[in-house]
Design a protein around this nucleic acid. Sequence first.
DNA 1: AGCAGTATCTGCATACGCGCAGATATTTGG
DNA 2: CCAAATATCTGCGCGTATGCAGATACTGCT
Lengths: 161, 161
Amino acid sequence: MPNPRSGDEEHVVFRQYLDAVGLQGLAGAEAAGLHTSEWYALSLIAQEGRLTSGELATRTGLTTGATTRLIDRLERAGYARRAPDPTDRRRVHVEPVPDALARVEEVVAPARRHVAEVLARYTPEQRALLFDYFARAAPAFRAATEEIRAAAPRRRTRKTD
Amino acid sequence: MPNPRSGDEEHVVFRQYLDAVGLQGLAGAEAAGLHTSEWYALSLIAQEGRLTSGELATRTGLTTGATTRLIDRLERAGYARRAPDPTDRRRVHVEPVPDALARVEEVVAPARRHVAEVLARYTPEQRALLFDYFARAAPAFRAATEEIRAAAPRRRTRKTD
DNA sequence: AGCAGTATCTGCATACGCGCAGATATTTGG
DNA sequence: CCAAATATCTGCGCGTATGCAGATACTGCT
């Protein structure tokens, strides 16, 4: 990697940073024994605390049938569980199993540790700034995610050329 | 631990940040029409600039046969191409197609834009610190990834023992 | 030149996720 | 109480990714 103008360099630095974080996430998902759709769904559930099957279907972009199976897998793997809705017995709430989230934490532990090492080299003020960035960037990334998913035409199958 | 209370909060902030970045990556991969193994492989190739089929097999943890098909898909989708090794004609180098990487950039564009908005609220000095963090954190995440993959009970792959 | 070792590719079989459409259970409205 | 609407589940088939093992092509060594 040569040393181009700093604007370019920032671009590359950020790109590689994103890639590294993304790859780490994928490795984590695999280590947790979860496929990406399951990992994605679990993140959604953990984030919202609790979702109905239908809501999960909407958020993941899957059909309700596929979502049922997805929940089956998550449940079988011990990451989530079904809970009845007291007011509407057709509905099924899906909620994370706390114990399993701890397992996910374990998988993320190496990343946390390595990053902690990096953070340790900064002053408390600098660390505060970084965490301020984390807090602000998370919603920004979530907004970007929604934007991407909204713009992406669902083209899972490439049979039609 | 100087401050358990704020430490806990940092924990959560960081976790949500990681989740948000990861989900964004997944959405991007899907928008690019790539499955996770393909996205993963493409990241590796882009990072190294060029890999042989065998090296890619090792890095992804796939068998050489599966890797051949993976390269086929990457090539058919226009993200990578095969290039002969001038010194060893058995070998096949896989390299990213620059044009396609630009397409991937497009997919990441929303994230870049949203984060740019966040970064715009900081002073140049603060931004410099953040980019310093990005540069340092990327290798840290890569190390974490290797650690995770090394520890993960990988599906029975290699038979070369 | 011949033989062993290496790198990649190709059939074959298997597993799995997903969409589709119908089935089942429950709520809501007349 | 019956019918329509709603939420989830199940049976079925398709497309695809992967492992395995053999085939093919090339290199290096004797």
